[in-house]
Write a protein that binds this DNA or RNA. Structure first.
Lengths: 349, 349
DNA sequence: TTGTAGGCGTTATCAG
DNA sequence: CTGATAACGCCTACAA
């Protein structure tokens, strides 16, 4: 195996060639390192001659300033971190997409952490991460100990997904209770009387969504039953489907904690011989892309996942730059998207 | 708004308290910084007294070593980068999941870059990224200029998705042509005679998959038509559906470049009044999670997305540690997953 | 406009 | 076992 390395004894292939430093550039251009530094960082004018020489030399040497060394002086890493619960959940995927775009536009690199992979204690993970970033976008669904530490000793942070109990925090998210209220009213207006909510108690938002449904059905005589799964994934929806749907007085509508669960529920309902929405309506939350491509298409609530990610990162960038206006919670409006999986009771296709 | 900051004039909320340095620890414990450093990094024994004092002081001060400063001297950042094409595509999401898990286990942070967000030139993005990481997992679908630079001047890299033309490179991926060959044989064996391939010429793999289909149908009298879309997304599948399916001699099977396209195609086929698989079979690639939850469930080819991500990162970690055995390409076996969207011609439900 | 020099926090070397 | 000290590459007063 041949390569272009300086060091042919490099193990396992090409060893990285030692990169040019600011001193190499200074020497080659016949100026001081300070001049090079100012040239790189802009904001000063130079002799035509110096400018030309520097431009040439820098290109020839392929010089790129070392972010670590720079960071030591400026105290800025040029990185921001994002901590999410599970990248396989399209809701978080969209969140990352939005955050990633804004970070990129701000010239910041994104340090990604999937908390679902956590063998490491959450707090230790946050502490390790925090020294490598200028700020953090994190899920509000962290332990109180982690949140306390973050607020007191951590880098600037923006929380997504819910209002935190800490004052002075920045957070952004959709109102889960309100979203569920709207979905509940939609179902009530369609004439449903017996509704099952398949929640995921491992998520804080699940209780909010349940509460919203309760509000929607308050005094309307609608019966709301509560189920719970171990994880917000399609497999769990499939698993719990029979016990939700085949009981003695089966529900005429099922609301799932999220679209993934709803996908599994709907699929298994059809396997069990039920017609959706003829026999039972199904609805979820998050408006993941795939909810459009089931048959029937899944009624869901758009929680603005990508926008939440983008806004959270936008606020973080502002905080890092010292432009932030103060703490507080920003709430996005959720939208119910009625689709084929919910239908008025009494109607037939 | 009140906070616990040292500096009440901090803009936009809490300013990060200046973290304890190794010198603070040394002074408080009455030892030298060198001793503290060795204590932190292990691999040496100490007096019981020193050990106790250091343990105490470090905890009290909450000291965590500064990764930037350490990186300057060790030459290691403790970060690895991953460059993918579009995180919204579940294939890449799984890839990141696998890579993330392995990186975490190796104690490395993951710097994530979504190339689809690229206003910045690809090469510039890579150069900026490369100084911040010890290694890179990147898509082989980069421009030749980028690959050249990466091989010559970049950090250790592992390419996923295809064999690169550069010798001495590490790459890992599934064999697209072989995968398509298997899928093609499956369709041929089911008795299909007129097959449409909806490719995405923007991806290198698409040509490989087309070639695999051609091999499968060689000399069998099966007709293979080629279509092309602008992006590998469901919307494009929907858009092209009518022109693929409603022509004068419509195909009896459609193979899409990936599952996302297939989802859109299948959905729109049903809107157009066609029965899948009765009138036309549909199949895709990647085995994204959602392909199980369409109706009918989508026949697809499992390309081992998450495993590819994990293996790529595993090889990268080995290279970084100098344990790598040499360059080369690692090929994963793809599996055809026959599901409800493909059915033998002549059979009826 | 340009140069000099000090220091950011850590590790590695070498001496005690 | 422990300590003093020189780097690592860069930025930033301050001086010229």
């Amino acid at each position: 195996m041949s390569d272009l390395s300086d060091d042919p004894t490099a193990p396992g292939g090409t060893r990285r060639r030692k990169a040019a430093t600011i001193r190499d550039v200074a020497q080659a251009a016949g100026v001081s390192t300070a001049t090079v530094s100012k040239f790189i960082n802009g904001g000063q004018r130079f002799t035509r001659e110096v400018e030309d020489r520097l431009t040439t030399v820098i290109r020839e040497l392929g010089y790129v300033s070392n972010p670590l060394a720079r960071g030591m002086i400026t105290g800025q890493t040029g990185n921001v971190g994002i901590v999410i619960l599970d990248i396989l959940n399209p809701h978080f995927t969209s969140l990352v997409k939005g955050a990633s775009r804004v970070a990129r536009q701000a010239g910041l690199n994104l340090l990604f952490t999937d908390a679902a992979e956590g063998e490491m204690p959450e707090l230790a993970m946050l502490q390790a991460l925090s020294r490598r970033v200028d700020g953090l976008v994190v899920s509000a669904r962290l332990s109180d100990a982690s949140l306390d530490w973050l607020v007191q000793a951590g880098p600037p942070a923006v929380y997504y997904g819910g209002r935190t109990s800490h004052p002075g925090c920045f957070s952004v998210g959709s109102d889960n209770s309100e979203a569920a209220l709207m979905l509940g009213r939609h179902l009530r207006d369609l004439g449903h009387r017996r509704i099952a909510y398949v929640g995921f108690s491992g998520a804080r938002w699940s209780a909010d969504r349940h509460a919203g449904l309760l509000r929607a059905f308050e005094g309307s005589g609608v019966e709301l039953r509560l189920h719970d799964v171990q994880a917000p994934v399609p497999e769990e929806g499939e698993r719990i489907a029979s016990s939700v749907l085949l009981c003695s007085e089966p529900p005429d509508a099922v609301v799932a904690y999220n679209d993934l669960l709803a996908l599994g529920l709907m699929s298994q309902a059809q396997v069990l011989g039920l017609n959706v929405p003829g026999d039972v309506s199904v609805a979820g939350f998050d408006n993941i892309i795939y909810s459009r491509y089931t048959s029937p298409a899944l009624t869901t609530v758009d929680m603005g996942s990508e926008a939440v990610g983008a806004i959270a990162m936008q606020r973080l960038v502002e905080r890092i730059r010292g432009e932030a206006a103060g703490g507080g919670h920003e709430t996005l409006i959720a939208h119910v998207l009625p689709r084929g999986s919910t239908r008025r009771r009494g109607e037939r296709a």
